[in-house]
Design a protein around this nucleic acid. Structure first.
Lengths: 210, 210
DNA sequence: TAGATTGTTAATCGATTAACAATC
DNA sequence: TAGATTGTTAATCGATTAACAATC
């Protein structure tokens, strides 16, 4: 699927289209134009059409886009229609939050397992997800390789665990630890969720208005 | 402080500079050049100097930048040196995670209070933060207005709570609910932390490599 | 002083917007 | 058919990079 170069800016908009189209579908809308999509998302109609044309057009002149058709095209571009697997490493509050309230499925993942070092958690099951001893990580992976490791453990373990899972052979790391991991060093895809960066931006915005 | 227009791309880089400079300071580095900063962050030296010059230069020819001086300039631009206040609304796992493990202080905030509807939580204290009945939100705010509301409650309440706090007079909303809130409608700054968007991007990256 | 490195101006590159022929 | 709206090409705008005089 990697025929052509796609700008990161376009890629970062794909989830927005995906979400918006799911909402349209849920509300029973079957047809949508680039301008409606644009106003829903705060983009321009031109931009929407440009974005889609990176992947080959999905619309029809004079009609617009068929919502469920476009949705499945976007889903397939993102890859949420495939069944990737993920493992949570670190079942503190954040790990719990993800297990209990986050829809991995919507993002194309099955949450296969979780790991922790706390003996009180090991062996228990949350929402159908087994929590295993972090010491079993290697042996578990050998039997059941997973695609993505979700790093929700304390930040002091982040580098070690990241290089461990990278060596095991995961394809991506979803990093919540506020530690900067080097994708090139590790040789895997990394997506960071840096709470602090986000709150600092909000801090800037409200400070500037003051 | 809002003399000149600053591009959002520059603003989104400010927290990276801030974090990097704190790390340099912690490691005892007292002086840094734009090129070292750049290679730490994956930027270019030119870009670093351009970014800083948006706010007036902070360096010295032939020398570079004094780390603690630059750090405090950046801190002041972001506003993390002021003491803003925040309130968490919704003390589920995610709310817990933020209360226990997230450093609001590093981002210029004091976490003043938390709200929930669960009678078992109301009246208790976590890490020194009181959890109050969500019904007291209005009266609490009247006495102790806070700057930012952190939305960590279930998504079905997001719109109601967002317009409620916007009407009360908060200046910003830190939104974890995966619901799209309109900054212009609400008249407050909004910063979204959309887990799903982030994981979908990772999904795209690993799918494309497959 | 000589070397280093800034701040800034100019050049390049890329992304967004506008326009419009194609066509459903 | 006439109206609507796409996909794409061209024009504009903005961001990044390169270059360099200023100067510590």
């Amino acid at each position: 699927m990697s025929e052509r170069y796609i700008s990161p800016l376009v890629i970062r908009r794909l989830p927005k289209y995906h979400r918006c189209l799911k909402e349209l579908q849920r509300s029973g809308v079957s047809r949508v134009s680039s301008s409606v999509l644009a106003s829903n998302l705060g983009f321009t109609a031109s931009q929407v059409r440009q974005d889609f044309s990176c992947f080959g057009g999905f619309g029809q002149q004079g009609y617009g886009y068929n919502v469920s058709n476009l949705l499945s095209e976007i889903a397939s571009i993102i890859g949420v229609d495939k069944k990737h697997t993920a493992a949570i490493i670190g079942v503190g509050h954040l790990g719990h939050a993800l297990i209990n309230n986050f829809s991995f499925k919507t993002c194309g993942f099955e949450l296969a397992v979780a790991f922790d070092a706390n003996p009180e958690l090991i062996g228990t099951t949350l929402e159908g997800v087994e929590i295993r001893d972090i010491k079993e990580l290697d042996s578990y992976f050998d039997e059941n390789p997973f695609d993505v490791a979700v790093l929700t453990m304390p930040r002091e373990f982040a580098h070690d665990i990241a290089s461990k899972v990278a060596n095991l052979g995961v394809r991506g790391i979803w990093n919540f630890t506020n530690v900067d991991l080097s994708a090139t060093e590790l040789g895997v895809e990394i997506e960071n969720v840096h709470f602090a960066d986000s709150l600092k931006i909000l801090c800037y915005e409200i400070s500037k208005n003051a």
